[in-house]
Structure formats: C-alpha cells, structure tokens
C-alpha cells in the first residue's frame, strides 16, 4: 500500500531460492565438473549472497530424480547456529541434509526401478520454491524480493512439460523471475523458456571451472540493480512443446481449440477437456495444414 511505503524493505534485499540438481545419472556422466566441485562453487555463492546484505535470505532445494526437499534455509540457520555455538554455519547443516536427501532419493529410486528416468524433478522443486515464496509473500508487508535460481545439469524430462509450464506461468503471475544456469551439455528448453517468460537470466557457462565467477557476476545481481546492469541476453529460445499424449518434444502438432492441449497425433477426443474433434485432414493436405484446429461441439 502506498500509505505506508516506509514499511517495505529496501530495494536490494533479496530472497534467493536455489534449486540444486542432484541427479546422480547426470553427475556420474559429467566429466568437466564433479559434483563436489560444483557444490563448492555453489556454497561460496550462497555465502556471497548472505554477505551482501544481512537481511538477504537463501533457501536451497535439492532436485533429485525421485523427490525434492528443502536442504537449507538461512533464516532457520541463524537460530540453530547460535545453539551449537561456533561452527562453519552454512556447510555442516547443508551437507548433512544433502546426504540424507541423496540416500532417500536413492531408496525411492530402487523401489520404482522399473522406470529408467534420467531427468531431475524440476517441476517438483519449482513448485516447492513457489510455495515457499508464496508463504513469504503472505507473511506480512515486510518481505525481501524473491527470485529463483535453477542450477540444472540433467536434460529436460518431456513428461514434466505441463507441470513445469504451469509452474513457470504461476511464477510469472507472482512476478518471480526464474534465473537459470545450465551446466549440462545441450541447452535446456525448459529453463530457456522459464527465464524468458519470467524475465530472468539464462546462462550456459562456457568454462565450468569458473562457475563461481558466473554465479556472482550474473546471478548475485539483485532485482533492483538489474534495471541498470547489462546482463546476458538470450541468444535464442527453444520454444518447442511436448505433446500431452506421448510426452515427446514436437515441432508441429495438433492443438485442441478449447483447452489448448497439444497432441502429436490426431485424436478423436481431447484427453484433457473431452471435446470431440472432427475428421483429420492431415493425411491428404499439405504440411502447412498440419497444425490443425478441430473444434466440434
């Protein structure tokens, strides 16, 4: 409210929710950067955020391949470290929780071993981050400016397409930018779209051993400073969608004109909203007619 402007935090106080990709499939395959190296870069980055302003807050969420969980919250940390006295505050807590998480993740993985998934549960951790941020929003008029930082290595899971897109749109609605730093081999279409839509920054570092420098120069920038600082711009965004029926990434497909669901093949009925489609003409007509709209009520 405008009547009490003095009750807001200053512009550069930020809440950073870091989504940490812990997918073992990716990290064992990755040759350029080991997980422990990656972690040391990230921890130094977390420290530097906390250093910049005493009101800054960092939350770390681990993104596994079966589950996600909060592994660090700087606002909780303050009270804990005072109990145990002197200790390298951030690390011990975080590493301990991370280990517990990895074990849990692996256990869950064994239970459902029939599915071979190589991608991390980005949609889950994004939703958790957004929930946390919503809670902060509702905590009162005095809250830091939130943003999400995805540190992702594993490739996109097309089966999560709908959930990820929903998370992205809700982030856009609540004006939370999603920054993404992709350390994997190819570009991630999900993260490119997420950053593009929410006004965040997408970076794919060229030299992974200098990851910390990328993190501090680009992602440590608070939202207030972004208005006058030149940040990397997206070179090109992969806007391809996944179809709802087989969860594969497609260039062209069919869209339900009622609910905008995407399908790779022609169906008689929309699986999402139940609208009945007419006869497909794609078999006979040209490729330009491929993207067919078929309402039939």
């Amino acid at each position: 409210m405008t009547s009490v402007p003095s009750k807001r935090y200053s512009d550069d106080v930020s809440l950073v929710v870091v989504l940490l990709d812990t997918n073992p499939f990716f990290w064992t395959a990755s040759s350029s950067l080991s997980f422990s190296q990656f972690l040391s870069h990230v921890l130094a980055f977390v420290n530097s955020i906390l250093l910049l302003n005493q009101l800054n807050q960092v939350v770390v969420i681990a993104t596994g391949y079966n589950t996600c969980d909060y592994i660090y919250d700087s606002s909780m940390d303050a009270s804990q470290s005072s109990e145990k006295g002197r200790m390298p505050s951030v690390y011990s807590n975080l590493l301990q929780k991370l280990e517990e998480f990895m074990i849990k993740d692996e256990k869950l993985g064994k239970e459902q071993s029939q599915r071979a998934i190589a991608s991390s549960l980005l949609s889950g951790s994004l939703s958790m981050a957004l929930c946390y941020i919503q809670r902060v929003f509702r905590s009162g008029p005095l809250h830091p400016q939130p943003r999400i930082l995805c540190l992702q290595g594993s490739s996109d899971g097309p089966e999560q397409y709908v959930a990820v897109m929903n998370a992205i749109f809700s982030a856009q609605r609540s004006m939370v930018p999603i920054d993404s730093c992709y350390v994997g081999a190819n570009n991630s279409a999900f993260l490119q779209q997420a950053s593009y839509i929410t006004g965040g920054v997408y970076v794919k570092p060229q030299h992974l051993d200098g990851l910390f420098q990328y993190l501090t120069t680009v992602f440590a920038t608070d939202l207030h400073s972004r208005s006058f600082i030149r940040l990397p711009r997206p070179a090109g965004v992969d806007f391809r969608a996944s179809c709802f029926c087989h969860k594969t990434t497609i260039d062209m497909g069919y869209i339900c004109s009622v609910c905008l669901s995407i399908f790779c093949k022609h169906h008689k009925k929309c699986s999402t909203c139940g609208s009945v489609f007419g006869q497909a003409q794609s078999d006979t007509s040209s490729a330009s007619d491929h993207k067919r709209k078929a309402p039939e009520t």
Partner: peptide, 16 residues
C-alpha cells in the same frame, strides 16, 4: 578477509 569469509562461511566474533 572476504575471500576467507566466502569459503569458510560466517563465524561469530566470540563464543557465547
């Protein structure tokens, strides 16, 4: 000093 801070994390000035 700040490099140390980043790599080791913040500590308290003296033990309570």
């Amino acid at each position: 000093n700040l490099q140390k801070h980043l790599t080791n994390g913040g500590v308290l000035p003296r033990e309570p």
